[in-house]
Design a protein around this nucleic acid. Structure first.
Length: 842
RNA sequence: GCCGAGGUGGCGAAAUGGUAUACGCAGGGGACUUAAAAUCCCCCGGGAGAAAUCCCAUGCGGGUUCGAGUCCCGCCCUCGGCACCA
């Protein structure tokens, strides 16, 4: 079935007509006046796309359609809906593509944006084209730079030298989030470590708030969980292990009292370790430091110095993939130093090993080989003592033998002096308190979250607005001098130097210090793309403003965002950064809310014929072709019909016939109904109509699009059942209800039904009346011992006795009850009668 | 290994603890037509039976309940995310 070959529904013509009209009449654009008034506002947001050269892919269209259906429904329900779209066009993605094609990104991006714009208009979204953003436009990134400066002034942007992930292929620093299993997210190259001075946003200061905030926002559970895991809070303690000076090696601290131990150790330097298992401290038989730990040089004995140095160098050379391989055998070196176990005063050796990471906790651990698998493996390899201090409740006391693996489960303490017999949970508290008393412990909460490195040694991004002055240090560019425009550089290829291509342009980076006027140097790194996208939703409603990133009146009316729809691949990247930037701007006093997105829903993924789509398999759906053949309305409706929106679906090429045929039938039914405007109502149709309105009205806001469309199909089947003649009043509500899915068709039929205004111009969503949705009769099930044995049709809400009487009279039921004794009758109104019987045959 | 989602006809999928398989695709039969397309009508989980009707079926094994796709316990498999995070 091809669309334009019959003289009925002609989607291509209808869609062209309405897209032109919407544009001419500004149907979807909010005027400055409307934005300022902000009456009954609804901010409907979707994740803006990266404008690739290939054009929109189905995943984009799926996400945008789902969001657009929601926006259109809210509009029909009476809201003033603001539904903007824009382009996230900075970043490595664009840059690498430009390099490959030999085109300058400044030439490439505009043509990609133009193509995306054409496609987005063609799919019929109600986008406000008067309020778009393009992150590469200086009028936008001027404010991205402004945000950097605000954070800098608030002490939230700091420059520090740090080991960073370096992709030797992309020749740039990657954030932790961009490293997948030790490899570059983009090109799959193993990532190396490098030490470079970088700008960091101190997102870790917000760890707890970012975690707490999750409780009060209406987000997809999976997304919240991903953020929770990413922030990775763990409660524990920092324990102090006094470093034993060489001259005290021979002394025994074992068996000292609390006071004696305190006075013997109070002048000693400590190694601080973070642990979530302070209860196992009696089982700590050695210490392991990260090879990079600054204290290593102080404790290494002269005999061990050479070996330690060699190991440190070996580790530094290791790329992160090799270092993070869990299955790799444990390696490490003894430093020659000893520390005191603060719990039992035993001197224990201090080792270094690459399985301890500098980036987490204190970069040092107390090793409890009896109760931690990593420590166990290490102890076995290095032949270090293993001491069991927790007994499983399942094991009998005499059964403690050599462990085959660490016991990490619950239990009670043993070999822990005064704490023997305490359950693990209780021991954690008690041991902490005890060590706290003698100054050897503090309660500590650790987070996995790292500071956000925003420096990129690349070309295609907004220059970081900082001037380095030998006298004044890093000085922010005065706000009046923004934007710092990214110059057009023909040779923008990155090199292995670890600095941005901008660092090759002396005429650009030499400047004067805004504070002291001496010659100074601009920062030549650009910022991370995720900074561009961490605030774009603040810009949309204020995109007309030339004097502020976001107008405070408009922002207070339209934000936070009412509904945000996007992919869960951004669960811990974009969505976390956006929350952080929002909180920071709130604290600095620029906005009135702390959470940017009241509601977030992650959509599912579309596969095709049971398989993932990929260019290499050659099975990608080309949206332009589908739209050309069936029209945007059919494509939209089909995508939404595939399955639950948050789960995605399997795109089967033949399946599009269903929704396509449905829209044809709607068109034909409506056209026929125009001739039939009878006042007489058909009871069956009317009842089904009200049931349908109820169902769809309840399901649409919950994004249950597939079942909503099914309900509309059912209704149309009733309207046309046995080829009956449709009435105008039966069809008009259907036109409104399909409008979110098939907006062009709905507009056209709405017009032919005599309306001069756009269907989306008012509160046109139909109301249902519960009385009219009510059935007079219902078919109910009759069960014997829970098994279906017949059905009867009774009046709605009939009482139990009458229902039972009718049920008993049913032929098949009577047969069963003849030979059985009824012990109980369960009656569920309008559902079933269940006879619980005991058989007499026995 | 940990966290999350899921497993239902030939296929995509429905089902507040209450008649499993709605809606759609594919398939079969029929109407209209010179023919095709489009449209319309009917059938369509498996098995037994002439029929009435009965048995089996929601990944597997148990349990709770008058009644379980749905709740509980123990497994298996698939897909996403995290992973030497102390």
């Amino acid at each position: 079935m091809s669309s334009n070959d019959n003289n009925g529904y002609k989607p291509i013509a209808i869609e062209g007509k309405w897209q032109t009209r919407w544009e001419e009449e500004g149907t979807n654009s909010l005027s400055a006046d409307l934005l300022e008034r902000g009456e009954n506002p609804y901010y409907n947001l979707m994740m803006f796309p990266y404008p690739s050269a290939e054009g929109l892919h189905v995943g984009n269209i799926y996400a945008f359609t789902g969001a657009d259906v929601h926006g259109r429904f809210q509009q029909l329900a009476g809201h003033t809906v603001f539904e903007p779209i824009g382009f996230d066009a900075f970043g490595i993605h664009s840059e690498n593509f430009a390099l490959k094609q030999g085109v300058h990104p400044m030439d490439l991006i505009p043509s990609n944006v133009a193509n995306f714009t054409r496609q987005l208009k063609r799919m019929g979204g109600m986008f406000d084209w008067d309020h778009t953003v393009d992150t590469t436009d200086p009028t936008y990134y001027r404010w991205t730079q402004w945000i950097f400066i605000q954070l800098f002034k608030a002490g939230l942007a700091v420059r520090k030298e740090a080991p960073v992930n370096w992709c030797p292929s992309c020749m740039t620093v990657l954030s932790n989030e961009q490293v997948i299993g030790g490899r570059c997210e983009r090109c799959d190259t193993p990532v190396e470590q490098r030490n470079i001075a970088q700008w960091f946003f101190r997102i870790t200061q917000y760890s707890q708030r970012l975690l707490d905030g999750l409780k009060n926002i209406d987000w997809s559970e999976t997304t919240k969980k991903a953020q929770e895991n990413w922030i990775g809070r763990s409660e524990g303690a920092i324990l102090h292990f006094p470093i034993l000076p060489e001259e005290q090696r021979g002394n025994s601290f074992d068996g000292m009292s609390k006071d004696e131990l305190f006075s013997a150790t109070k002048d000693l330097k400590n190694i601080e370790v973070f642990t979530t298992r302070p209860d196992t401290v009696f089982g700590a038989t050695y210490i392991v430091l990260s090879p990079e730990h600054p204290i290593v040089k102080d404790i290494t004995s002269s005999q061990q110095a050479k070996t330690i140095k060699a190991y440190q160098e070996q580790t530094a050379k290791l790329d992160l993939v090799a270092r993070q391989k869990t299955e790799k055998a444990k390696t490490g070196v003894f430093t020659g130093g000893y520390a005191l176990n603060p719990a039992n005063g035993t001197a224990i050796p201090i080792w270094i090993s690459d399985y301890v990471l500098m980036g987490y906790g204190t970069g040092a651990i107390m090793a409890v080989p009896g109760h931690d698998q990593r420590d166990f493996d290490f102890a076995k390899t290095m032949d270090l003592p293993i001491r069991q201090v927790v007994r499983s409740p399942k094991t009998s006391e005499n059964n403690i033998t050599d462990l085959l693996e660490a016991y990490v489960g619950d239990g009670v303490l043993i070999n822990s002096q005064a704490f023997d017999g305490l359950p693990v949970q209780e021991a954690k508290k008690k041991i902490c308190e005890w060590l706290k008393d003698i100054g050897l412990a503090s309660v500590h909460i650790g987070y996995r979250l790292h500071d956000w490195c925003i420096s990129r040694q690349r070309y295609w991004g907004p220059p970081i607005p900082i001037i380095h002055c030998d006298e004044c240090g890093p000085v922010p560019v005065p706000e009046k001098d923004l934007p710092i425009v990214l110059p057009r550089v023909e040779d923008f290829k990155p090199d292995d130097s670890g600095v941005s291509p901008l660092a090759r342009m002396e005429e650009w980076y030499i400047t004067v210090c805004p504070e002291c006027g001496t010659t100074a140097r601009r920062e030549t790194d650009v910022s991370d793309t995720f900074l561009d996208s961490s605030w774009y939703f603040l810009r949309y409603p204020s995109s007309d403003s030339e004097t502020a990133p976001f107008d405070s009146d408009i922002t207070s009316k339209w934000l936070p965002v009412d509904c945000y729809i996007g992919g869960n691949e951004h669960a811990v990247l974009h969505l976390l950064y956006s929350r952080f930037i929002t909180m920071a701007l709130h604290d600095i006093g620029h906005i009135h809310f702390q959470e940017p997105f009241v509601r977030f829903r992650a959509h599912g993924l579309i596969i095709r014929e049971g398989a993932k789509m990929s260019k290499s398999k050659g099975n990608v759906i080309i949206p332009d072709q589908v739209i050309e053949k069936y029209g945007a309305d059919t494509f939209r409706t089909y995508l939404m019909f595939l399955g639950p929106f948050d789960e995605g679906g399997d795109y089967q090429d033949e399946g599009i016939q269903g929704p396509h045929g449905f829209l044809h039938r709607v068109w034909e039914t409506a056209t026929e109904a125009l001739q039939n405007d009878s006042v007489e109502k058909n009871a069956v149709v009317e009842r089904k109509l009200h049931q349908t309105i109820q169902q769809v009205t309840e399901q649409l806001p919950r994004l249950r699009y597939n079942t909503s469309i099914a309900a509309l199909m059912e209704y149309l089947n009733v309207v046309r059942s046995k080829g009956r003649v449709p009435q105008k009043s039966e069809v008009e509500p259907l036109i409104v209800m399909i409008a979110p899915f098939a907006p062009h068709l709905a507009e056209d039929l709405w017009e032919s039904f005599g309306h001069s205004e756009s269907i989306f111009s008012g509160m046109n969503w139909p109301q249902y009346e519960p009385d009219k949705a009510r059935e007079d009769n219902v078919e109910i099930a009759i069960q014997i011992n829970g098994k279906l044995r017949g059905t009867i049709t009774v009046e709605t809400d009939i009482d139990k006795n009458s229902a039972e009487k009718i049920a008993r009279a049913e032929k098949n039921i009577a047969r069963y009850l003849d030979t059985a004794m009824v012990k109980r009758v369960v009656y569920v109104p309008n559902r079933l009668v269940n006879f619980v019987v005991e058989s007499n045959n026995a």
